[in-house]
């Protein structure tokens, strides 16, 4: 449990929730780190980044394709995914087909949906902690 009398818990409810959600979206696990759940943050960071890197390694960055519906799930990993999409479109011009593409899409897409789950969970926990502090 985080020290509720210090740090980000001095923020109002809405800015705190926004900060936790936005940070968790940019870097998987950062939302949990802000609210003091260090172990969860480390596990989330390591697990989600592993899934992203394995997906990108299997299928190359060509799997980040803005024309595919999977792109919206991949974007939940981090806004930096959009940078990879730009790199692929403007610099690399890579392409991938068949089974590697499927597996890469599944890995990166599922990692994105897991990060969305973590963001929602971090915002919920921050709200719970903030409410508990205010009721004291």
């Amino acid at each position: 449990m985080a020290d509720k009398s210090s740090g980000v818990f001095r923020l109002g409810s809405l800015p705190l929730l926004f900060l936790v959600g936005f940070a968790g979206w940019w870097v998987p696990g950062l939302g949990h780190l802000i609210i003091g759940k260090k172990a969860s943050a480390a596990i989330i960071f390591g697990s989600i980044l592993s899934a992203i890197f394995v997906g990108l390694w299997i299928s190359s960055i060509a799997v980040i394709d803005t024309h595919e519906p999977w792109y919206w799930a991949q974007l939940f990993n981090s806004p930096l995914i959009a940078l990879l999409s730009y790199l692929n479109g403007e610099v690399c011009h890579c392409s991938v087909f068949g089974r590697p593409r499927e597996i890469g899409q599944i890995y990166t897409g599922v990692a994105g949906m897991l990060n969305l789950l973590c963001v929602v969970n971090a915002v919920y926990l921050a709200h719970k902690m903030h409410s508990a502090k205010e009721s004291e």
Partner: peptide
Amino acid sequence: SFVSPVDIGT
């Protein structure tokens, strides 16, 4: 290794 896909058969 991130710009060329791995060969995985069906």
